[in-house]
């Protein structure tokens, strides 16, 4: 992946990583409350890549199908926030949230709904943290359940978005108890939104 050329300057990437870290800190706290134990969450990678490169990156890291939640947001900047987990790990995560007293049948039946709610809490923690940091508002739509290959997930409802548009890709590692549940958060944004985000960061840092 290192062969991919950087598309945005280092300062901006560093600033975004810092903003995202604040949001993800809230997300970790929320998830910890949900599973009632310590959640170790790190954001080891923040990259701006094209959508097609993001598909390759996640596809290479995760061979299986993915499931997760997609939430459109708009306001000071807009896009789709997507939380993804390898499909096999999603039931483990749901089990950790709803507890052991739910049968496997019930768990499977409520998988989509539970994943939407987990995504709702995690993505909102991140988005709200960013909005408050900038003193702006972000309106989030109702989150939707997504499933399939990363390409299918990225392109559904985004067919008009050029493949070369930019994706803010975060690699987010969750560690819950003995389970090593690894997830990804991505923000799918077009160039105009990336510029709007950049502008917010510049205002926030006083470097207009």
């Amino acid at each position: 992946m290192s062969a991919k050329k950087p598309i945005l300057d280092e300062f901006f990437i560093d600033a975004v990583a810092e903003v995202i870290n604040v949001g993800m800190g809230s997300a970790a706290a929320s998830l910890s409350e949900m599973v009632n134990e310590e959640v170790k969450l790190s954001v080891p990678g923040v990259e701006f890549v094209t959508r097609s490169d993001a598909e390759d990156i996640i596809g290479n890291r995760t061979k299986s199908n993915l499931s997760g939640v997609k939430q459109h947001f708009d306001g000071a900047f807009s896009g789709d926030a997507i939380l993804l987990f390898p499909e096999k790990q999603s039931l483990e995560l749901i089990r950790a949230v709803v507890g052991d007293d739910v049968t496997l049948d019930d768990l499977t039946e409520m998988e989509q709904d539970a994943m939407k709610e987990i995504g709702n809490v995690i993505l909102n923690a991140c988005l709200c943290g960013m909005a408050d940091m900038f003193g702006q508002q972000l309106r989030g739509e109702i989150p939707g359940y997504v499933k399939g290959t990363v390409k299918q997930i990225f392109t559904s409802e985004n067919k008009n978005m050029p493949e070369q548009d930019i994706v803010l890709l975060l690699k987010m590692d969750f560690a819950i108890e003995q389970k090593n549940i690894q997830g990804y958060v991505t923000f799918l944004m077009d160039m105009a939104s990336i510029d709007a985000l950049k502008n917010q960061i510049q205002i926030f840092m006083g470097v207009e």
Partner: peptide, 14 residues
């Protein structure tokens, strides 16, 4: 007289 609350993940100040 009822206790009414937003119970939400949308924790924005607004």
């Amino acid at each position: 007289e009822a206790k009414i609350a937003f119970l939400t993940a949308n924790v924005q100040e607004s």
